[in-house]
Design a protein around this nucleic acid. Structure first.
Lengths: 188, 188
DNA sequence: ACTCTTAACGCAAAGGATTTGCATTAAGGT
DNA sequence: ACCTTAATGCAAATCCTTTGCGTTAAGAGT
């Protein structure tokens, strides 16, 4: 993970953007194992030593980029009901993460010893559930139990993606959702 | 992950053992990020190129060693009841995996693109549950639902270890177990 | 037991990646 | 506008990784 910079404006910010963009571009057309720091540096128009000094090594840079990629661009869909919001969010999460690129992003984020990137990604999930919970309370619906959704739905999805011991289908996700307490699921 | 060797006896086997042992020894006294292939090679008394040719890179070797380390040395404890067996197994799993070394092993195993090591580790868990299930059926107890234990207990434990968003305590594990269907838990 | 084939290894040179010292540039504060 | 120093660029030094070629020994066949 990148250390926090003291100077965040101008050149530093521009270089960070260039390096991230270069990494994306390379990830899009090359296998992860074929990508090197000097390659990224060249594509970004910086010297390798800049990347080494800011990010430490390739793994940290990839983790940083991955956690940035996984940052949600918008709030989860508002379907009108809490159960619907949760289902929509979970299905989208599962689809995104179980794809080949999603699995790679997950791996990059989780394989760093410094778990800043992992914490960031984890927070995105909690944030989405917060948003859904806020809507629920605005509608006067029962409170959303975040932890239960993480433990009973998100966690098994991640487990199977990482260990590769089963396919993540929409039906499987719906089964997980159906096993939640009644306040969190759609009426059957 | 190591490719499968055509010749498995004599020298090859000895070298594999030496390299694994050397990796263990280094892992025990150095930070993972400080370990290199040449270091392992020297400690094992082989040339680096041998390691590169057999394992490909450091990550694959570490994944191989980690999956070997995680191989269980014995069957799960027989506590006399299925619920007891499950609880004992889960608590031990959680303790082993949530420790610093356990977390590192998990990371090493999961960060490889080739998921042979991950599949191996995953299988160990299933095998243990199989053993517990066989005992249950020998005792005439209800069948153990493997998948349910993976999804509802093992998966959340792994999720929180990997993302670092909460401590894994014995109480937390027991809470997960208590939420299982009655046939899988201890009487309250 | 002996031979044969070739997988796996050791060695060393070549090719890259990573680190580091020093000069330069430019953020952010005065 | 000036000053301090964080962050970068450059290049040399170091270390890791790959590769060609000769050697060793595993496993099959006789």
């Amino acid at each position: 993970m990148a250390r926090e910079l003291v100077r965040q404006g101008g050149r530093s910010a521009r270089i960070q953007k260039e390096v991230h963009a270069a990494t994306h571009a390379l990830l899009a057309r090359l296998d992860r194992s074929a990508i090197t720091v000097p390659m990224i540096a060249e594509q970004a128009g910086v010297t390798p030593s800049t990347i080494y000094r800011r990010w430490g090594d390739l793994g940290s840079l990839l983790a940083d980029v991955a956690s940035e990629t996984l940052r949600p661009v918008s709030d989860p869909d508002d379907t009108g009901s809490t159960a619907g919001d949760i289902e929509a969010f979970v299905l989208q999460y599962a689809e995104e993460m179980s794809s080949k690129v999603g699995r790679n992003l997950l791996r990059d984020v989780l394989s760093e010893a410094e778990d800043t990137a992992a914490a960031k990604c984890c927070r995105y999930t909690y944030d989405h559930l917060d948003t859904i919970a806020a809507r629920a309370s605005a509608r006067g619906e029962a409170a959303v139990q975040q932890d239960l959704i993480i433990d009973r739905v998100i966690a098994p999805i991640c487990y199977h993606i990482l260990f590769g011991d089963r396919e993540i289908t929409a039906d499987y996700c719906r089964d997980l959702l159906a096993a939640l307490p009644a306040t969190h699921r759609r009426p059957a």
